[in-house]
Amino acid sequence: MADFFQLLFSGLATGSIYALAALGFTLLWQASGTINFAQGEFVMLPAFAMLAFASFGMPMPLSFFLTIVLAIAVLGWAFKRGIVDPLFRYGMMQIVVATIGLSIAMRNGVRLTGAEAHPFPSLFADRIYNIAGVTVTQSDIGTLVLAMLLVIGTQAFLARTITGRAMQAVAQNTESASVLGINVPRMIFYTFAINAILACAAALLVTPVYLAKFDMGESLGTKAFFAAVIGGFNNSRGALLGGLIVGVGENLAAAYVSAAYKDAVALALFMVVILFKPQGLLGRKEERKV
């Protein structure tokens, strides 16, 4: 039984990482119908930015702050203006292909600085706790708690603040939102900015485990994508649920089913969800339009 909880807890910690990246997916999709295939790279770039600032001798909090500012400008504003705005009216296919191009460019641009993986300082002390036969590290707990707080915080912001509600109104119905006098482009920009901030936070939590490497976004992006779909693409809480399900599912499958086919378990779940509840476990149903 202790073994089971060991797997469960490790899975939750890994899953919360997926959830953070998945949250950005769902936010962008809701606000602007953007499927961002460069989401993994959006986490990778801030990680390298932080390392770069730190290499100039800046303390970590300062370089984190500077990275956020930079990310809002580049991954938020420039991404929206440069890629999403011009392609928005053409639909999903074009944005998908453009973000694929973007991910190739980002990954290989960073590769030019070196193909090595770099260690990344952890927020947490290197300490191990033993609770009833289950060993957990401080970073497992910390990652899980922080990730949950970020997801809940984002949720609260969307549900409780005026700006957040306006953003949700835009996500649900752009036309009536603009009739109500909401500044639609600004609200959409806010979503992109939040996505950029979340990416920086994810980078801070993820990179000590994933290591700063030019291709770290590749597998992270795929897992986050699965998580977002399972949880529900148009619901932010779904991202958390989806991430945890993928993280735990992988671990349990590797231990009790087959290590070689462990990805297939998340996949099977993914297929079942898509076929029977395509809007995701917590998603709203989207009506078929003529």
Binding site: I83, L87, V97, G101, L102, I104, A105, N108
Partner: peptide, 17 residues
């Protein structure tokens, strides 16, 4: 590959169809 990725982005923005 960096140039290739950037070219894809620019092509898409220039000619979405």
């Amino acid at each position: 590959l960096f140039v290739f990725g950037s070219a894809v982005v620019l092509l898409m923005i220039w000619l979405p169809d």
